[in-house]
Design a protein around this nucleic acid. Structure first.
Length: 360
DNA sequence: TATACGTGGAG
DNA sequence: TCTCCAAGTAT
């Protein structure tokens, strides 16, 4: 932990940054524009919260269509609380990090039942809710409630490590950065300040080839002055991804229906639908493949797919069999003509596409 | 502090 | 093809 003091530089960030934001703010479905805010439009905490959860480790482009679907289908937190959890998981399918969807639903339930549908307005109150960590609590407090909270996301880490040439590797530098951001955050328009820093990081102060010539903070940026902007942020070295092997099983009924199962709520792809699979924790030398089939049948390998998760690469053998009988083996038979519309994680869609190259 | 947790787009 | 990485959180 550092004890960085309010510096003249940090105190001077807000005015030029907000002036830049007034001209260059991105237009986003969940955002109140600086102009509208000036005219008294206030943010909807539900939309701010929903967007912040979706945006965790996820690009703006990927979030947009999901956000539109969610707010149209569930316009308020009470609507989301009243929704069926399975429907929420289905609506989230493809967006990734599925624990976010489970916690989203838990959080909505809690806000609806404990707080009458009204979100807490303090960082501390927000932080206590499922799926809301230090970043999201600060972001919601600032953007929805104009609390001068220190909002620190990946963009802001990059901007500040450059402004102050912070050479401590991330994530160790986080406390130091948070202190500096706190000193730079103005009492007026703290939400716009946070969003301005994120827009700056996304459009000007980019990871590669930052457009310093267009930056409103270039004169106060230590890295820009020394020409070392691309040397920041310093990051801890990454670990190599291990390879795991596994098998997925496409059981096809005579009418073309395919057997699907619901995965356990915890762990990888938790709570999502998918094909029956082996465990993926085994290494390449472990017992896997056809021996992990959910039941006996004339399994034939039809393909092999590769899928890269955050912390490992998966090589999945895909087996197919035509089966008879009415047993659902704890899952359900998904009809042939609607299989392509099933809400499945991407890795499962890949496996199906491998077994049915004509249908996907 | 370290690890688990998805996906798709950019360069 | 490959590496990086995008508004992080939970444990």
């Amino acid at each position: 932990m550092s004890s960085a003091k309010p510096s003249p530089i940090s105190a001077g960030i807000a005015p030029p940054l907000l002036a830049w934001y007034d001209r260059h703010a991105r237009t986003l479905p969940w955002r109140v524009s600086p102009e509208d805010r000036e005219h008294g439009v206030v943010a909807d905490p539900y939309r701010v919260w929903l967007s912040e959860i979706m945006l965790q480790q996820t690009t703006v482009q990927a979030v947009k269509s999901y956000f539109d679907v969610f707010v149209r289908r569930w316009p308020t937190v009470n609507d989301l609380a009243a929704a069926d959890t399975g429907d929420v998981m289905k609506a989230w399918a493809g967006l990734g990090y599925y624990s976010r969807a489970r916690n989203l639903k838990k959080c909505a339930d809690q806000v609806a039942t404990e707080f009458g549908g009204v979100f807490p307005q303090t960082e501390e109150g927000l932080r206590a809710l499922p799926g809301i960590g230090p970043y999201t609590a600060a972001a919601i407090a600032a953007i929805a409630f104009d609390v001068p909270a220190a909002v620190v996301d990946g963009n802001i880490e990059r901007v500040f490590t450059r402004l102050f040439e912070i050479d401590t590797p991330l994530p160790s530098a986080k406390p130091e950065i948070t202190t500096l951001v706190g000193s730079a955050t103005p009492d007026e328009r703290p939400g716009d300040f946070a969003q301005a820093l994120m827009d700056l990081g996304a459009t000007i102060c980019t990871p590669k080839r930052p457009a310093c010539a267009l930056c409103p903070l270039d004169e106060g940026c230590a890295a820009r002055v020394s020409g070392r902007q691309e040397a920041f942020p310093v990051k801890a070295p990454k670990k190599t991804k291990p390879v795991r092997k596994g098998a997925a099983f496409v059981a096809e009924r005579g009418d073309g229906a395919v057997l699907l199962v619901k995965r356990p709520d915890k762990g990888l792809l938790g709570g999502m639908s998918g094909l029956p699979t082996s465990n993926w924790t085994v290494r390449a030398d472990g017992k896997t493949g056809i021996s992990a089939a959910p039941f006996e049948a004339q399994w034939r390998q039809t393909g092999m797919i590769s899928h890269v998760f955050t912390h490992f690469e998966l090589r999945l053998e895909v087996f197919h069999a035509v089966v008879t009988g009415t047993d659902d083996y704890g899952g359900w038979w998904s009809a042939s003509d609607s299989l392509a519309e099933e809400a499945l994680p991407t890795v499962m869609k890949k496996a199906l596409a491998s077994a049915f190259p004509d249908r996907f």
